[in-house]
Design a protein around this nucleic acid. Structure first.
Lengths: 374, 374
DNA sequence: ATCACCAGTGAATCGGATG
DNA sequence: CCATCCGATTCACTGGTGA
């Protein structure tokens, strides 16, 4: 795999030449097929520098669809089974992209709206200001165990779930690459903040990220900063030259420990029985629910024991017995059951956390056991 | 023309029976083809009342496409040459709708994002909160002299061009129609404010507006208020009954309350993570408290990271880590934590203020940032 | 009259490991 | 392939009740 390099050529062809199932995530910013008419002027009569490059011209919708199906199909084969893809577009092409993604078997996870902080106004006053672009995030298939760093996204948003509408400025000012004449090097350079969020959401450090329409290499630059491996593909020498220089000047600046995000789901599993084995809870201890409406006794084997209405007993895991007490389909026993700590009641999750901290300090003695029991 | 009545039956069939070129605008809220799996429960174990009605079930994407092509084709013939159509959908169906619209010769004018003020969260934490729906506004053809009430839209928006992202609350409370059992009469009733803006943008009083998926008749009720003629089509007796009653009780008067967009909040919320995404702070930057007694490092996800006495690490939001450092129950992390600016230390609140000023320069007037600029 | 608290709810493609 | 079990997971808003 040609990691951390730019390949020159047709992206479908090059993707077909790489080993199948070898890429964790693909970010694609394909031609939008804008179909612009004549020139557009601002109210002050200055001319709008539109995207009229040859690579954005297609003779018909069918030509665009064929082109799209070709590269998306190659992209799908390149992804690992649990990989995912991001594509970005506007109303000119996003419906074609979305339809073909679905037809090829991709499973759409979200459509994301990039709300532009500073869009170009509609100078003619004939439509609404086109103030957003759309990203589609899709897994390779319905069965994929795609990666989503939920906790990182929540943390980025001050502990509130990240929504499907993102408000970010355009790429302007110093971030915008210029060519030797001081003109913008690429007509549609995307802001790094957009890629930062995409990479943070759906990849891990060390993952391989491919961008088939690399342009000025925003994906590569952000991937390098965030210690993801990247592969870029483009057909234009001028873009490859600009991207190469840009990425060479970019440092992998973020430390490993800073790149880590914690997810409860990925923490070490602690069976309830370990609390008893290690004396954090004694057999016979009485647990209650938060409202003190139900009680259960701790059995020596890690089961809980409750008395039933008919004078019998019931036993089961902390989760099963919590669900039964509430008449609910499921229950997180760790947060439901509380133990007595002096005059207060604490969730048994506190004991789990305590044990987890201890185990982390002594990885040599307990690590193997913990790992094998996971 | 059966103006201001509801027709019962298949919408494509009924549209074919009406005179061609006789309708000025069509608003369509077709089935979304959600393809839901099993049941979904909230964290409190209550069940989500999903949209699982028979009319939303299609056996395949092809079946859905055939259905869509059929009614959109009939709709196109029904429009005047200068007429336009609005369709609404989610990522499940909007790409199919958009592709078929384009294939039939409709000319897309805008895609509009309805950002929901109060969407349902993602309960499992597996994706981004699906916080918007998409509307497509299209003219009958590229040559259409479609109607767009530019000045009305600008006036609605405090004299700034209306953007393509609209921030509106869901239809809840008193506006939501209930059946005889007190249950919601329709699973997906749209808010009147949404229809108000659509009608205000693209029709004139006296115009004829048709809704082929009439449901509880929101389109008819708002059209009546705004003195547009309306035609509704639906297949379900229960919806027709509810819509008939609703429109009979609606008066043909323009309700000024509807004119208002959701009021702006005083200040927009800036998550700490935005400073990192936008490069105002780098991951790894060291923050200190005003007395330089505590330090914390900035994580890539917007959490702060501190070293604990026992050699471990702790992470959390700026507020939580500020509280922990002081042993206080709460803390305003924005004023507590300081970053190094040359030789001086400045509260990170300065960076927030800087970003806020930048954002304020480009006010998102359409819609109120509320808590969710995102 | 006001406030605090609780319950309910909205177009939702909402697990993963183990046996 | 399927069954079983563990255990992680929610935001904004409305309306009712009781102090």
């Amino acid at each position: 795999m040609p990691l951390n390099t730019i390949q020159k050529g047709d992206c479908a062809e090059i993707m077909r030449s790489l080993p199948k199932g070898s890429v964790d995530m693909i970010f694609a910013d394909p031609p939008y097929n804008l179909q612009l008419g004549g020139e557009l002027h601002r109210p002050d009569n200055s001319k709008v520098d539109a995207c009229d490059d040859h690579w954005d011209q297609f003779s018909s919708l069918k030509t665009y669809d064929d082109f799209t199906r070709e590269w998306l199909s190659a992209a799908r084969d390149l992804l690992t089974d649990d990989g995912s893809i991001w594509v970005i577009g506007s109303y000119h092409n996003i419906f074609r992209l979305g339809t073909i993604l679905q037809d090829l078997g991709f499973w759409v996870l979200n459509d994301i709206v990039w709300r532009k902080a500073n869009p170009m106004p509609n100078f003619r006053g004939r439509r609404f200001t086109n103030a957003h672009e759309t990203l589609i995030w899709a897994a390779k298939s319905e069965k994929s165990k795609y990666r989503f760093n939920y906790d990182a996204m929540k943390a980025l948003n001050e502990d509130v779930q990240m929504r499907s509408d993102w408000f970010l400025p355009l790429c302007t000012g110093g971030e915008r690459l210029k060519d030797d004449n001081g003109e913008k090097a690429h007509p549609t350079q995307k802001p790094e903040a957009l890629l930062y969020r995409v990479l943070m959401a759906s990849t891990l450090p060390g993952d391989t990220v491919l961008d088939p329409f690399f342009g000025t290499g925003t994906t590569g630059a952000v991937a390098k900063k965030m210690k993801r491996n990247w592969i870029g593909i483009d057909r234009e020498d001028s873009y490859i030259k600009a991207a190469t220089k840009r990425i060479a000047e970019t440092k992998a600046e973020i430390d490993n420990d800073l790149l880590q995000t914690v997810s409860k789901r990925e923490e070490q599993r602690i069976p309830f029985g370990w609390l008893i084995e290690r004396g954090l809870l004694k057999p016979g201890a009485v647990l209650t629910d938060p409202k003190h409406e139900h009680t259960a006794k701790v059995g020596a084997d890690g089961n809980l024991i409750t008395d039933t209405a008919d004078g019998g007993q019931q036993r089961g895991s902390i989760h099963r017995m919590g669900a039964a007490a509430q008449g609910a389909p499921s229950c997180n026993g760790w947060t439901y059951w509380h133990y007595r700590d002096g005059k207060n009641y604490q969730p048994i999750d506190n004991l789990r956390q305590k044990l987890r901290t201890e185990l982390a300090k002594r990885p040599d003695t307990t690590g193997t056991e913990a790992r094998t029991l996971q």
